[in-house]
Simulated assay, not measured.
Amino acid sequence: MDVRERILQAATDLLVASPDADVSTRAVCEAAGVGAPMLYRLFGDKAGLLAAVVDHGFEDYLAAKRATRPSDDPVQDLRDGWTNHVQYALENPNQYRLMYSPGLTVPPGAAAEAFGLLRATVERCAAAGRLRVAPATATQVIMSANTGVALSLIARPAFYPDPAFSDLVRDAVIDAVTRPADAPVHDAPESPVPSVATTLGALLRAEPSGALSSAETALLQQWLDALAERRGHPPEKS
């Protein structure tokens, strides 16, 4: 085990045992058997160390998500991803709280990768005609709700004794941004234009058309994104 790995392991062990999800650099140096200059040379400062600890701790979780093969039902994949996210948080509460701590000035790469993996699944929903809103909006809605539930269960478990709480929120959120597989777009109570624009935009991102130049494709995507975001807006009258 090299020095960097030793420092990360020591910091992780201290973080797991910490009652307030925090560690001191002095304690980390003592546990790792290194001097402070070495720690700061490798990680910059305490914020850099903690961000690296989060990335280190989330590697197994992210590796499993990277290796997961998409199913034929991308909406079910969203549900499964939500459940796995909450389960990881409950099993690793201190690392999870640190990952989303507003006091962490160096953003962990794990947070960005988790968001990107969710966005990829949302794009699959859009390409399958299953999304009600633009992929960017759906990703933000799902991630913020998923994170909020996980943090609530960690911070105030006594307030959420129902074991089905996470599933109830999950289903409500995902049902709000997706459409049933057997629901025709033209039968939806809202205008079908946003859903169609969302689907077409996702398909073009997945399989760029050689009939359009890069500039034309970018302009078309801009128009489709604008149409996709008009969900809930009444059509303009001429």
Results as ranks from 00 to 15, higher is better:
V53A: 05
V53C: 06
V53I: 06
V54Q: 07
D55E: 07
H56K: 09
H56T: 06
H56N: 14
G57S: 12
G57T: 12
G57P: 03
F58T: 12
F58Y: 13
F58A: 15
F58Q: 12
E59N: 10
D60I: 02
L62Y: 03
A63F: 08
A64P: 03
A64G: 00
K65G: 04
R66G: 11
R66P: 06
R66Y: 06
R66N: 07
T68V: 08
R69L: 15
P70L: 11
S71H: 03
D73H: 04
P74F: 09
P74G: 07
P74W: 09
V75E: 10
V75P: 01
Q76G: 05
Q76E: 15
L78Y: 07
R79F: 12
W82E: 00
W82I: 10
W82F: 14
W82R: 06
H85I: 01
H85K: 07
Q87C: 12
Q87T: 15
Q87H: 13
A89L: 09
L90Q: 10
L90T: 01
L90G: 02
E91M: 10
E91N: 15
P93I: 09
P93G: 07
P93F: 10
N94P: 05
N94S: 11
N94C: 09
N94K: 09
Q95M: 13
Q95G: 15
Q95T: 11
Y96C: 03
Y96W: 14
Y96L: 07
R97G: 00
R97F: 04
M99L: 13
M99E: 02
Y100A: 11
Y100I: 03
P102H: 05
P102D: 02
L104M: 07
L104G: 00
T105L: 13
T105K: 15
T105F: 05
T105S: 15
V106N: 11
P107M: 00
P108S: 05
P108G: 00
P108M: 01
G109N: 10
G109P: 03
G109K: 14
A111E: 12
A111M: 07
A112Q: 11
A112R: 13
E113T: 03
E113I: 08
E113P: 08
F115P: 00
F115H: 13
G116P: 05
G116F: 11
L117H: 06
L117Q: 11
L117A: 09
L118W: 01
L118T: 07
L118M: 10
R119D: 14
R119Q: 15
R119K: 13
R119F: 14
T121H: 02
E123S: 08
R124L: 08
R124G: 00
R124Q: 04
C125K: 04
C125L: 12
A126Y: 01
A126M: 02
A126T: 10
A127N: 03
A127T: 04
A127D: 01
A128E: 10
A128K: 07
G129T: 05
G129L: 06
G129C: 03
R130V: 04
R130G: 01
R132K: 14
A134S: 13
A134P: 02
A136K: 14
A136S: 13
T137N: 08
A138C: 10
A138I: 05
T139M: 04
T139F: 02
